[in-house]
C-alpha cells in the first residue's frame, strides 16, 4: 500500500471504530432494564458484538503505525478527549426510549450492510478480513433490528408514534455516513474503500421503501449534516462515565 494512504486510511478506520464503540456503549446502558428478558439478552448480545468490532478496527488503526502516544485500543478509548473522537453524531445521542434505540441500531445495521461488501473487497487485506468477520455478525443484527422496527412501527398507535418521532430525529443524522469526505477520495481511488456517493442512492431508496412499508413517513433532510469532528455535549457525558475508572488510575493494569 502507498505509504501516503496510511494517514487517511487510519482516519477512516478510527471513525468506524469510534462508531462501534460509542454505539455499543449506549446499547449496554439498557442491560438489566430492557422491556422483557428476551430483549435484554438479544440487545446485550448486539452490544457485545459491536464492542468486538470496535476492538478489531482499533487494532487495524494501531497497526498502521501512527506515531501518536495514544495508539493502542485501550488508550484510544480511555484517554482521548471528546474533540478527538471521530464517531458519527447519531451514535453518541442518549438512548431515549426503546423505539429510539431500536431505530438507531437498525439504521446503523442497514448502513453497515451497505458499506461492508465494498470493504470486504478492499485492497488493504487486513481491512478486507476484518470486514468479512464483521459482516457475518451484522447479517444477524440486521435481521434482528429489522424485525423489531417492523413490529414497533406496525404495533399500537403509541408504538408507531414513538417510532415516527425517532425517525424524524435520526433520519437526517443517518445521512452522515453517505456524505462524501474529501480526505477519503484517494482511498476510493486506490480501491481501499468504496465511494460513499456510489452507495448512497441504493441505501436511501431501500430505506425509504422499508419505512413507508412500515407506515412511517420519512422526513425531508433539511439540516446541516455534521462532520465526524463535530460532537455534542452528550459525548462529553458519555466519555466521563466510560473513562472514569481508567482515568482515576492512569497506568494501572486491570
Amino acid at each position: 500500500m502507498n505509504p501516503e494512504l496510511a494517514a487517511p486510511l487510519a482516519d477512516f478506520l478510527l471513525g468506524r471504530a469510534d462508531d462501534e464503540l460509542v454505539l455499543s456503549h449506549r446499547n449496554s446502558e439498557w442491560t438489566g432494564h430492557a422491556p422483557i428478558l428476551e430483549e435484554d439478552i438479544a440487545f446485550t448480545n448486539i452490544a457485545l458484538d459491536e464492542l468486538g468490532h470496535a476492538q478489531l478496527l482499533y487494532g487495524l488503526y494501531a497497526e498502521l503505525g501512527r506515531d501518536d502516544p495514544i495508539r493502542t485500543p485501550d488508550q484510544l478509548v480511555y484517554f482521548r478527549e471528546a474533540p478527538a473522537f471521530r464517531n458519527a453524531q447519531l451514535a453518541e445521542l442518549p438512548i431515549g426510549d426503546w423505539a429510539f434505540s431500536m431505530l438507531r441500531q437498525y439504521l446503523f445495521d442497514s448502513i453497515e450492510a451497505s458499506w461492508l461488501p465494498g470493504l470486504t473487497s478492499s485492497r488493504y487485506q487486513p481491512l478486507a478480513e476484518a470486514a468479512a468477520k464483521i459482516a457475518a455478525e451484522e447479517r444477524y443484527h440486521l435481521r434482528h433490528t429489522q424485525a423489531r422496527v417492523r413490529r414497533l412501527a406496525g404495533g399500537t398507535d403509541e408504538s408507531q408514534r414513538r417510532m415516527q418521532t425517532a425517525l424524524e430525529a435520526q433520519w437526517p443524522l443517518a445521512q452522515q455516513w453517505f456524505a462524501a469526505e474529501p480526505a477519503h477520495a484517494q482511498l476510493v481511488e486506490a480501491g481501499l474503500i468504496p465511494a460513499a456517493e456510489s452507495l448512497a442512492p441504493r441505501w436511501f431508496n431501500e430505506q425509504v421503501a422499508f419505512f413507508e412499508a412500515c407506515g412511517l413517513a420519512v422526513p425531508a433532510v433539511e439540516r446541516h449534516i455534521p462532520q465526524r469532528d463535530e460532537h455534542t455535549e452528550h459525548l462529553v457525558d458519555l466519555l466521563s462515565e466510560l473513562q472514569q475508572v481508567a482515568r482515576a488510575h492512569p497506568g494501572a493494569v486491570w
Binding site: E29, G32, A54, Q55, P73, L242, W254
Partner: peptide
C-alpha cells in the same frame, strides 16, 4: 443479579473487561 454488575459495564476500565462483563451479564439473563 444483572443489576449490580450491569451498572459497571459503562465504567469498565479496559475493552477486555468491558466485553467480559457484557458476556457475563448476558449469560445471567440466559
Amino acid at each position: 443479579g444483572m443489576l449490580p454488575e450491569g451498572a459497571w459495564i459503562t465504567r469498565a476500565p479496559n475493552l477486555r473487561r468491558k466485553m467480559v462483563l457484557l458476556a457475563k451479564v448476558q449469560d445471567e439473563a440466559g
